[in-house]
């Protein structure tokens, strides 16, 4: 079961975009706006092989953070959160793994994806995708997005972090 506080789960459930930050080459932070999906325990992001540098970074160092900051992309919710965790890339079969793992979650958040899938022939490489599975380990939370106050800092229970 998940341990993230309920206000952060609410953000994850509506966010159309979150900023995923990975450890790039030379230890530099690199940020990618992506649509986050959440199954109540893990956070899932996904990436086409076209834009796969982030996957290379994660495979080299799985430590990541996901920031949820934009009220426009979160149905007006002004709260903010940053979730740190460890990511792994699932890509045994980039053609179909992602459909099995996250299509339902994706469809629930972005129903228009079915229209894009029908046009798979037009953009075949866009639909060769890897799934990024994040196990949350720490969460920072700013109620009403107010960063003038220090965030609430919550850590995963020991058994989850282990």
């Amino acid at each position: 079961m998940g341990w993230l506080p309920e206000p952060i789960e609410r953000l994850l459930e509506v966010a159309l975009v979150g900023e995923l930050t990975v450890v790039g080459r030379n230890g530099r932070p690199v940020t990618h706006p992506l649509i986050p999906l959440y199954d109540g325990e893990k956070i899932y992001l996904h990436s086409s092989t076209l834009f796969s540098k982030k996957l290379e970074h994660i495979k080299r160092d799985g430590r990541v953070s996901l920031a949820l900051t934009d009220p426009v992309a979160m149905k007006g919710n002004r709260d903010r959160a940053t979730i740190q965790g460890t990511a792994r890339v699932i890509e045994d079969d980039p053609h179909s793994d992602w459909e099995r793992l996250i299509l339902e979650l994706w469809r629930a958040k972005e129903p228009a994806i079915d229209d894009f899938l029908k046009a798979r022939v037009a953009l075949p490489l866009f639909f060769e995708r890897a799934v990024i599975e994040i196990t949350p380990e720490r969460a920072l939370y700013w109620e009403d997005g107010n960063t003038d106050r220090a965030p609430t800092d919550v850590r995963a229970p020991r058994e989850v972090a282990a």
Partner: peptide, 18 residues
């Protein structure tokens, strides 16, 4: 706004909007 990110002392990226 911008999201500011860096690698924290534990080696994880961390981010804050400002």
């Amino acid at each position: 706004r911008v999201v500011v990110s860096w690698i924290d002392e534990s080696g994880y990226p961390t981010s804050v909007a400002t």
